[in-house]
Design a protein around this nucleic acid. Structure first.
Lengths: 224, 224
DNA sequence: CATAAATGATAGCTTTACTATCTTTTTAAA
DNA sequence: TTTAAAAAGATAGTAAAGCTATCATTTATG
């Protein structure tokens, strides 16, 4: 039996549900490949359409614009990651053990999840590292936020924040520490590969060191 | 006597030095105002030219494209901030006191510096918060990095990293902690204002709390 | 089998991003 | 003070991006 995994998406993100058709799934699949290869700035609906073998108009029937599509795939990732975290930390009683697990999941290389046929999580993880913050770093954040576009990100953040609070209920900044971990798991990775002098991992380019750094940061702060 | 402040810029960033003429200075001044108002995505050389009262071609004589201009103003800010930090921490012997001062300077509202006539640091600070990471989050980071475009950012980071190392020479991650502080000083500010549930400062929207959070984070980590 | 829904094909329009050319003005050296 | 070269202004034009509209054809679904 093959298991399937489904991430529920915000309906306001799309005009037509990309999960509902082959074309829709191809839009997601090829977007991930193209954005991974060429970056979000040089990604266009025309190139996407060509890569799929459809037309620009075809893509526009699913997504209003490329920014919405970026939010779609990035929040898909956050939704998927929250599921991974909940699954992998299930039944772990000690919150510190859970927190360690979470940090590892946040900062380690991701492998393609076979249960999701049209999403390559390995590529998507790289996209989230390089383009993820562009999802909200816009002049229309607040509008997008009103549409609940960032809910999966906030949910994930709040999940991590809750574990932190469980480790030390007196720690004053569980949410900020959670968002710091999330962002830094990605930024330190980006820096390590592209601007290595901003990190202490230049030589080895070893992700486990990012995990170690984040663990040290978090457990020193919460004084568990 | 009026003091003037001059930040040395990387020559590869521009085609013609914007400091060398009135038009050039206007390009910087109006860029800052327009990007602050409408965001980098909707900022165009056409709009900029109109706002100055020149033509698109006029702007293109100074900057190859708007991304280079963004790097220019953002690295200008980093250069200016490094100067501020060096000035304000001068003669402070205790590295922990210096570090506290640095964190405060990084995470507090900036006021317009009267010594720089065509740059409004208050607006520029907001731009760096919202658009700063877009300077390097591109597919051409490595190329840009070879041109030394990010040197001012790295220098600032390394200055902070050195102070951390001075506080505790045994601490293993001075550079990563430094880049974490720099990024989080901005991201927590952005979150506090636009996605408040990602922080613990939602109610008060008080920047001094970001400073307190960062101080706690840093001094817990380095165990000074 | 009918019919609604989705897709394909094509066209077109506005804006962005950029280059070229020629004229006029400003600046700076002879 | 003249003179040439550098900068700025004016104008035009091109390719690509971003988007909408229309109509024919194919594919689901009741």
């Amino acid at each position: 039996m093959k298991l399937q995994l489904h991430i529920e998406m915000n309906e306001a993100l799309y005009l037509r549900n990309p999960e509902s058709s082959e074309l829709g799934k191809n839009i997601i699949k090829h977007s991930i490949e193209l954005i991974y290869q060429h970056g979000f700035e040089s990604f266009t609906f025309k190139k996407l359409a060509e890569s799929i073998g459809t037309t620009e108009a075809g893509v526009y029937r699913y997504f209003e614009n490329k920014h919405r599509l970026l939010i779609y795939i990035v929040t898909w990732y956050w939704g998927w990651l929250e599921f991974q975290i909940r699954f992998q930390t299930n039944n772990l009683k000690d919150p510190a053990v859970r927190l360690r697990k979470v940090i590892k999941l946040l900062a380690s290389t991701v492998e393609d999840d076979e249960r999701t046929s049209y999403v390559n999580e390995a590529l998507l993880h790289q996209i989230v590292i390089s383009e993820g913050s562009k999802a909200y770093l816009t002049n229309h954040v607040e509008e997008d936020n009103k549409h609940q576009f960032f809910k999966p990100y906030k949910d994930l953040c709040s999940l991590v924040g809750d574990i932190i609070a469980e480790c030390n209920p007196k720690y004053k900044y569980p949410k900020s520490l959670a968002s710091t971990i999330l962002e830094m798991a990605h930024f330190q990775n980006f820096f390590m590969h592209h601007l290595p002098s901003l990190t202490d991992f230049a030589k080895s380019k070893d992700e486990t060191k990012i995990v170690a750094f984040l663990n040290d940061l978090v457990f020193s702060s919460i004084k568990y």
